[in-house]
Amino acid sequence: MLLTMDKELIQIIGVTLKMSFFSTLISCFLGLPLGVLIERGRFWGRRTLKKTASTLMGLPPVVAGLIVYMLFTKYGIFGSLGLLFTVEVMVIAQVLLITPVVICLTSSVISVSGKHLSETARGLSLSKGKTLLLFVFHNRRALLSVVLTAFGRSIAEVGAVSLVGGNIQWKTRVMTTAILLETNKGKFTFALALGMVLLLISLIVNIGASLLTKRRDSDD
């Protein structure tokens, strides 16, 4: 099945990658700056924001799925958008789950070098923009791990996406929901094949990320 590249399998992989890519992208776009801000910024409500983010890290996926489901169901606040059982709403549920993880991990990455890096930057009279850039560049390896963790969580998620996506064939079926379905049907070969593809994608993403960091280093 893997070698002949079954049409349905390719479609499932495509939906999975699309959903994981966009949810990771949006989560990192929101979570990375927020994580830096929580750690280095001095503003009212900073501690509350940090506590909220760490609490939401433990948010059960099905609960996240339920919240999004209720928001986007026919009689929900966003029901008129008609997004329920689409890849878009799956991305929204994933963002709700992953963003707190990105915020907390970014915050702890920054806290390790934060004080000394900040003092060093201040001593060199670096502008705020250059200091922020320095924080990101100096911690790029650790931040890349944050991005990979977010992608890993996204690609492996099943509870929320099956709830809001509905696991519809040729539309919202992703690898994890397909594995669950095929296992329930007793089709272990197909389920196993999907599991192998899932692992392979994770491996490729990890290798790509480490190559990217290596190339950047030699550019210095």
């Binding site: 001593g123 060199l124 009279s125 320095l134 100096h138 210095d220």
Partner: peptide, 24 residues
């Protein structure tokens, strides 16, 4: 006047030695 300060635990940025100096 302008101040330059080298902290006790001055951190070397995770980049080349030359880039460390050119960065500022």
């Amino acid at each position: 006047g302008s101040i330059l300060y080298m902290p006790q635990k001055s951190l070397c940025f995770d980049m080349s030695v030359l880039s460390n100096v050119t960065y500022s």
